[in-house]
């Protein structure tokens, strides 16, 4: 087990280095840089900037140095000093901006993950056990729809319904009166009251996907000889189902953390934009549009690292639960 984790951790290092390079490369990709954007903006406003100032700015941010020097400055500051650089657009340290949005992103992602499982698990089991029943058809249909509806469309539709049926606009994570208030029980309840909409929106696609995976896996397992054998040994149907095939069917379920997590993080960006949530998503979008490279790079990097770590966690969990993975079945 320790060997297994050790090996996985070792594999992670080159992956993370590569990811950081890719993240930096992406933010470097657009022609020009933030200064160019700034000049363009000022010109649009009828102002101008003299060459010396431009040069000074470039020099200050190291923008005229070669790619690898910039990369090294960037990554070494992150790794050794925890310094993610400075956001041009917000004129604040990137670390500060992340600190104010990342917790909400993680809160949203993990609560959605739990929500997804809580819903997908029973539906998947029901759907497999009662194959071809009406309930199965309903579940399968919903699963199909869930996969086919883009997140933002669902968000828009829910917003429209909330607006027309309940007559109040939804969006954000807090009501106005709590937005800048210190933390209190009331604020917490208010948060929960707002959290469910993005949770449902974000969770739908994942839930639908998981229902399909679980159903297919469980159906496969239910046809295995050991199920018949367990039945022949006089075990009850419930025990046969819940103990033996489910244990095997759950394994791929666990490994879905690997793709559910990145999907959630990706989905969060677009849903948060629609629902105007104070998370990293909208921040990334604005940063990308205005070439606020350190902010965008930091977000892409952190999200990627989280994904890789999530995959690692799911693999460890899988090894923990499946003796064949743990002990290396031949």
């Amino acid at each position: 087990m320790l060997t297994f984790i050790g090996r996985r951790l070792l594999y992670m290092v080159p992956t993370l280095i590569l990811i950081s390079i890719v993240a930096f490369a992406i933010i470097q990709l657009p022609p020009g840089d933030y200064i160019t954007t700034m000049i363009a903006q000022m010109e649009a406003d009828g102002q101008s900037m003299d060459a010396a100032t431009i040069e000074a700015l470039r020099d200050r941010y190291g923008l005229d140095q070669p790619f690898y020097v910039q990369y090294w400055t960037w990554i070494s500051n992150i790794v050794f000093h925890g310094d993610f650089g400075h956001s041009f657009q917000w004129n604040r340290p990137v670390g500060y901006l992340l600190g104010s949005t990342l917790p909400f992103t993680m809160l949203l992602t993990f609560s959605t993950l739990l929500f997804t499982w809580a819903i997908a698990f029973p539906i998947g089991i029901f759907s497999a056990v009662k194959q071809y029943s009406i309930g199965d058809y309903v579940a399968t249909t919903i699963a199909f729809l869930g996969v086919a509806i883009p997140n933002f469309l669902l968000a828009l539709a829910l917003m429209y319904i909330a607006l027309t049926v309940f007559g109040q606009p939804v969006g954000g994570l807090f009501s106005d009166e709590y937005a800048s208030a210190p933390w209190s029980f009331g604020k917490f309840l208010d948060l929960l009251g707002h959290l469910w909409i993005p949770m449902v929106v974000l969770g739908t696609a994942g839930t639908a996907g998981l229902v399909r995976v679980l159903r297919a896996n469980l159906l496969d397992e239910l046809r295995k000889p050991y199920v018949v054998a367990a039945r022949a040994h006089g075990l009850t149907e419930r025990r046969i189902l819940l103990k033996y095939p489910l244990r095997v069917a759950v394994n791929p379920f666990l490994s879905t953390i690997g793709w559910v997590l990145p999907a959630l993080v990706s989905g969060e960006i677009i849903v948060s934009q629609v629902l105007s949530l104070p998370t990293t998503g909208p921040l990334l979008l604005r940063a990308l549009r205005s070439q606020d490279m350190y902010l965008a790079g930091a977000i892409i990097l952190i999200v990627s690292v989280l994904t890789v770590v999530g995959t690692l966690l799911s693999d460890i969990l899988l090894a923990r639960l499946d003796p064949r993975v743990r002990l290396g079945a031949r």
Partner: peptide, 15 residues
């Protein structure tokens, strides 16, 4: 009691 043809597959791999 009953015994089957494929002994390995007739036992759950998880326990």
């Amino acid at each position: 009691g009953m015994v089957f043809q494929e002994p390995i597959a007739s036992l759950s791999p998880m326990y």
